[in-house]
Amino acid sequence: MNENKPIRVLIAKIGCDIHERGPITLMTAFRDAGMEVIYTGRYATPERVVQTAMDEDVDIIALSDHTGSMPIIAESVMAELKKNDEMDIHVMAGGLILPSDIPALENMGVKGNYGPGTPLETIIKYTKSLVHPV
């Protein structure tokens, strides 16, 4: 992998969730960290998110949700990735995630699982390490 290639991230909001402050904050933070950030907009579907990730050839899908439905969302996205044989696209999650849901998410291979108040530096550092492991 070429180190000069900017990291490409797709921020996705699936389902009926209008809370955009989180993804917008993250978009700005990722951009300022030198990444190329694409946003699906609200009300995306798992199929559309994975298709977009493939079309945009992103390194990471970052799922944002504030309705407590992350396990359902993540499961459908992971299934869609598997169906398309795209398991090397990393999946991260953030937003309002129940602490009790985190083990199940990690089990699915969903990384990060950041809740409110996580320092942006933590997220950025981890995101970079996913694409360029040290």
């Binding site: 900017p6 978009m27 700005t28 990722f30 951009r31 300022d32 960290a33 030198g34 990444m35 190329e36 950030v37 694409i38 946003y39 699906t40 907009g41 995306a44 579907t45 199929e47 559309r48 298709q51 977009t52």
Partner: peptide
Amino acid sequence: YTGGAFLGDRVRMAEHGG
């Protein structure tokens, strides 16, 4: 300044995503 970018045009074209 940072080499990063926010690519937001897709949002307006979302209806063609599928």
